[in-house]
């Protein structure tokens, strides 16, 4: 009995730890890939209403073999794409992944995604929490 209780407690603690930490993701969309394009980009806004700075440390999606975190920067007129190991989301703040800035980069799947399709992303944060978000494929520059 005692053992069962402690197991129950343990599983409760684990589920609490993995629970939603308060970070939120919305407005997610994937740019429809032009024909011939081998790479795609996804955008969203992550909001952190908590008192603690957070970092996005990894992203997965069943729709893509790989999801990389990137940032486009333009310095002296040169556009560069920089790989990011993590993306910071300040306490009581938000970060927008948007064209020309932070974005997710994925290899285009064999079956071409079309405007209107929906894909799931799982966002992993440095506090061990994860947030899933549905992104709509849009034909948008």
């Amino acid at each position: 009995m005692k053992r069962r209780l402690s197991l129950l407690l343990l599983s409760l603690i684990i589920s609490l730890a993995a629970a939603d930490s308060g970070l939120m993701a919305d407005g997610a969309w994937v740019r429809e890939a032009p024909p011939g394009a081998s790479m795609m980009a996804a955008y969203l806004v992550i909001t952190n209403p908590t008192d603690r700075d957070a970092r996005l440390i990894g992203v997965e999606s069943p729709a893509f073999a790989q999801v990389m975190m990137h940032k486009s920067v333009t310095v002296d007129g040169m556009a560069r794409m920089l790989h990011q190991d993590s993306i910071p989301i300040p306490a009581h703040g938000s970060v927008a992944l948007e064209p020309g800035g932070y974005h997710l980069m994925m290899p285009a799947p064999d079956t071409r995604l079309r405007a209107g399709d929906e894909v799931e992303f799982m966002l992993h944060f440095d506090d061990n929490s994860s947030v899933s978000v549905t992104a709509v494929v849009r034909k948008k520059p």
Binding site: R31, M39, M81, P99
Partner: peptide, 17 residues
């Protein structure tokens, strides 16, 4: 280049407009 997923489609979409 076409392997560019962010800046190039954004710029070409803008030029299309």
């Amino acid at each position: 280049y076409t392997h560019c997923p962010d800046v190039c489609p954004t710029s070409l979409g803008m030029l299309g407009r």
